[in-house]
Design a protein around this nucleic acid. Sequence first.
DNA 1: CGCAGCTAAATTTATATCAACCACCTCTGT
DNA 2: ACAGAGGTGGTTGATATAAATTTAGCTGCG
Lengths: 251, 251
Amino acid sequence: MAYFEEVIVAEIVNHKCDVCSDRNTRCCKGCFEEDDKSIFIGLTEEELYFLTDGKQQIKYNPGETIVKQNTSSTFVVCIREGLAKVYVEGIKGKNSIVRLISKHDFVTGGGLFNGNIQKFTISAVTPVVCCLIDSSKLVKLFAENNQFAVEMLRFHIKQNNYLLNKLVNQTQKYMPGRVADTLLYLKNEIFEDSQFTIPLTRQELAEMSNMTKESFVRILQEFKSSGFIKTKGNEFLILNESALLSISKNG
Amino acid sequence: MAYFEEVIVAEIVNHKCDVCSDRNTRCCKGCFEEDDKSIFIGLTEEELYFLTDGKQQIKYNPGETIVKQNTSSTFVVCIREGLAKVYVEGIKGKNSIVRLISKHDFVTGGGLFNGNIQKFTISAVTPVVCCLIDSSKLVKLFAENNQFAVEMLRFHIKQNNYLLNKLVNQTQKYMPGRVADTLLYLKNEIFEDSQFTIPLTRQELAEMSNMTKESFVRILQEFKSSGFIKTKGNEFLILNESALLSISKNG
DNA sequence: CGCAGCTAAATTTATATCAACCACCTCTGT
DNA sequence: ACAGAGGTGGTTGATATAAATTTAGCTGCG
């Protein structure tokens, strides 16, 4: 975990974007509009402008820390390019990766309206370009746009459900079930393809599944010899999703 | 777990309260005002009236189900009297108790603004009187009262942090750490006293700590012989909180 | 008395740890 | 260019430890 100690050398891509002066050419438009699931979908033109005006768009290299647990910040993070991991730095150096985030994903911290202390660390897995929006802007929008407030709440309730579900999965399932969960998560939520190349080490995959890397590898091996998956280095191919689903459900 | 199958025989205490016609004598005033931490603190007189007008105040007997996981409901629950448990019915009949709720506690479900399907079960541990508020009223208030929207969001973010923390504690700690957590939770969050009598069985305490009741009992025994606690039936006395804290932190 | 919940010990299973080994890079010096 | 050194991450097996399960006996209470 040497990279946690690395100095952050963030390159500010556009502190204030002057390439794009109106909404249509606004460089970070994609962050907010392309995705139906976006929280920002209900915002008017002016509100969106208010939100994106002067926001920082930053580039991070693999391994760099975007948000550091237990530090104070008032930013909300919105990923524009690349893959990052959201994880909790737990007991005795153990990490638990909570989720992976990529294009259009949005992370509001544990500190939002709540003391501004981050409850998790976010770090770049691949090169990441992301937007940092000051949370005070969100509060202003609440006053103006009721729909936006509801969307924000909906988003957090979904996240609550996700965590609740993860809590049960991680505590009640045996290791094969948890490995199956991780594989299905990667296939269905992150890559949306049975074949994918993961820019994560086995150690990190194990941290997603809450086990040691040795245990993870062993179970992966069992899945391979059962013909459920194929792997070659970081290339994964899911051959029998229903088998994995059944292992996941069974526990 | 026989009580999960029990028929709900809910007695409607006051469907519409006519004992109290103004705010000061309003029977359920206590639900919303006495506690500084209340989400409803920012509401005006009229808004509070709007919220509490016509709400159902229901009485449940021990073991009865207030909200059932995977069913649809549009209610938000506010406890007025008694103790209830919020738990997830997991894999192979295993339950995980997520939190206990008592007077003034507020539970918004996984279904709020999100399909209305409950993600957990709430059942009465002691006799419970609680208020069921229709969630559509909350949306209306969002439009009128910006502060309320922020409070709702803050509440959910806190809950997120709680779950995140619980996820790490439950997956990274050994059993003694988890038992210590449960005892400290009961002392500090629920009873606010080193001495308390728990209306929960060892089975349920184990479900709070994500282990079998046998394991829970054994560790309780170890804590007793180490002089950290005393127990007699359901009476608990915490003698050495700092020892428990150290066990909790150490893992 | 009989039941439900609690306790205790035994056995079995799940999981982590430790240690060795391998495969593949990357660097470096010639 | 290329051989060798050293590093990193991946895999495997042996062993130790943690925890669940099983079983049985206990206790207090209606």
